[in-house]
Write a protein that binds this DNA or RNA. Structure first.
Length: 261
DNA sequence: AGTACCACCTGACGGC
DNA sequence: TGCCGTCAGGTGGTAC
């Protein structure tokens, strides 16, 4: 689930509920969650401090701790961030809890445990070290064109490559290419200027709209592919049928009529 | 530089 | 009811 729009929703949630409040207690329920940092250090760095601000880069969420470190959150396949008031029950699969003095808390939940948390002193250095490409919403039209043409693979694979552009996964790469009318298997290197412009415009529109509507599928516009991710589902624009195929091991969906190459 | 495949985990779902 | 295969939106390693 967690692609750029999902993580942006988590970021906004954290910014609205978790900043400028002293963290009274840090519970690490899953010892395999912290990456390249011990549970003890994670607890020591955060307990008694405040979260001061948030940043997001692609699918990574960062929160500045008042001691100078940044908390790093990655959500894997099933991770999410919740806020609970005192007395509200914990979700099953809660892996990390930041508890405030009044009993309310921010909870990191991850059913399949493919996500992780970490610490870093410097977000820019972390992004460079991963390495992650520029955040998808920060890429100019010309930069996107150059990035796409710098790679040989299928345009869908290139859009999903976090070292090229950060934030786009399987779902939204399909949506962007459907909206742009581009065949997901088209070689990225072969895209003409008009196709690159359409991809850039739709990338921004799709990711921003999904985040602004809290990634609620029922609030997505008619004409989006997202609710039609099923082989032989009707094309949302009435042009025949959506088809499923495999691209480097991932299930991909597209409309052969709308996205002819 | 590509892609294919497996692994990491856990769970849901359909077929028998 | 239970067992089995398949699938899942992320990432990373390996082999070709």
């Amino acid at each position: 689930m967690p692609e750029l729009p999902d993580v942006e929703v988590f970021r906004r949630r954290l910014a609205a509920t978790g900043l400028h409040r002293q963290v009274a207690d840090v519970e690490v329920h899953d010892t395999s969650l912290p990456r390249e940092v011990s549970r003890q250090r994670l607890q020591k760095v955060i307990t008694g401090h405040e979260l001061k601000r948030t940043r997001r880069h692609g699918k990574h969420l960062f929160a500045a701790v008042s001691c100078g470190q940044w908390l790093v959150l990655h959500f894997g396949l099933t991770g999410l961030l919740e806020y609970h008031r005192d007395g509200e029950p914990d979700d099953d699969h809660t892996r990390l809890t930041l508890r405030f003095g009044d009993g309310s808390r921010v909870a990191y939940v991850d059913q399949r445990r493919l996500g992780f948390v970490s610490l870093t002193p410097d977000v820019d250095a972390y992004v460079e070290h991963e390495p992650l490409g520029p955040d998808a919403l920060e890429v100019s039209q010309a930069a996107l064109r150059d990035l796409l043409r710098s790679r040989r693979g299928a345009v869908k694979s290139v859009l999903m490559d976090q070292t090229v552009i950060a934030g786009i996964g399987n779902i939204y790469s399909d949506e962007i290419l459907f909206q742009a009318g581009v065949d997901p298997r088209a070689p990225a290197r072969s895209l003409d200027d008009a196709a690159c412009r359409r991809i850039h415009r739709q990338l921004r529109r799709v990711l921003q709209m999904a985040a602004d509507r809290s990634v609620d599928v029922s609030r997505m516009p008619r004409g989006w592919l997202l609710p039609h991710r099923e082989d032989r589902a009707p094309c949302p624009r009435g042009n025949g049928e959506v088809r499923r195929f495999r691209l480097s091991g991932r299930g991909a969906f597209y409309c052969p009529a709308c996205q002819a190459s």
